[in-house]
């Protein structure tokens, strides 16, 4: 049976799509057949981050409206074997998704895939609730900043009250992923620390992704940052995938790096 994981945050712009792309790619790299679905109907982004925007013919809404089959809409990733993308529609809005339609699509995907990653839109409205409703697990993406933390708190409350699992009396397993973390700014008290965020949200920490230029570069090139294994962000996502698979991996990139003489001279990161 496939595991459905929603990537959600409440707040926009914290790195949900970047994370969805990275985690899905990471799971496929580890040999799991994975599909990543863009639930952000009307603001299609995932295909850009995954670098498959020119190959989108049919989308999620077409499948729900039975205008295309699932196989016609699924895009096979060119870099990573076993990875597929189900893009969102750019011309429709979020009302085009229906609960029954989403359920049917997920049930059909569950027959073929081991992991289904749902990239949630921002907000707490219908679109976001649809993305999280069928989830078994949730990755809550948070920036170390008060408004993001509060929105995450809100979305966790919704996860535990308005998801199918919750309605059946179970719980959605939560993971906290802290992105855009900058140890230097934490040290100068400009940013919340990992401990602060963990204290407020009380959710197990899946990973901390350091703020990195590699993320923007990866997005613009249409290659998930996890493929850039030179970068700290890429390595941090690899660690997060390992932890998601139940491995015990030490957290990295939490401390201020002491710059060596050469590094200071070259000013590089």
């Amino acid at each position: 049976m496939a595991k459905i994981i929603v990537v959600t945050s409440g707040k926009g712009g914290v790195g949900k799509t970047t994370t969805s792309a990275a985690i899905a790619t990471g799971l496929a790299m580890r040999g799991f057949k994975t599909v990543v679905i863009d639930f952000d109907v009307g603001l299609r982004n995932l295909d850009l981050i995954m670098g498959c925007e020119r190959r989108v013919v049919y989308d999620f809404v077409n499948v729900i409206k039975k205008e295309a089959t699932l196989n016609q809409a699924l895009i096979k990733d060119k870099r990573t074997p076993g990875l597929f993308i189900l893009p969102a529609s750019q011309t429709r809005d979020k009302d085009a998704l229906s609960m029954e339609g989403v359920q049917t699509v997920l049930e059909n995907l569950a027959k073929d895939f081991e992991y289904i990653i749902c990239d949630s839109p921002a907000g707490i409205e219908q679109g976001a609730q649809m993305a999280l409703y069928f989830a078994d697990e949730a990755i809550v993406v948070t920036n170390p900043e008060v408004s993001s933390v509060r929105d995450s708190d809100r979305i966790i409350g919704i996860l535990q009250s308005k998801s199918l699992k919750a309605e059946q009396g179970g719980t959605v397993k939560e993971h906290l992923l802290l992105t855009r973390y900058n140890p230097e700014r934490v040290a100068s008290a400009e940013m919340l620390s990992v401990a602060d965020v963990e204290d407020i949200l009380a959710v197990p920490l899946l990973g901390v992704i350091p703020e990195s230029e590699a993320v923007l570069k990866a997005s613009n090139q249409g290659a998930p940052v996890i493929l850039d294994q030179e970068s700290e962000a890429g390595q941090a996502y690899l660690d997060a995938v390992s932890r998601l698979l139940g491995e015990d991996v030490k957290h990295r990139f939490l401390e201020v790096q002491k710059k060596g003489f050469l590094k200071r001279l070259l000013g590089g990161k």
């Binding site: 509060r150 708190d153 809100r154 409350g157 535990q160 009380a202």
Partner: peptide, 8 residues
């Protein structure tokens, strides 16, 4: 027994 979250 569980946290009471923002908005709840």
């Amino acid at each position: 027994t569980k946290p009471v979250r923002s908005g709840q």
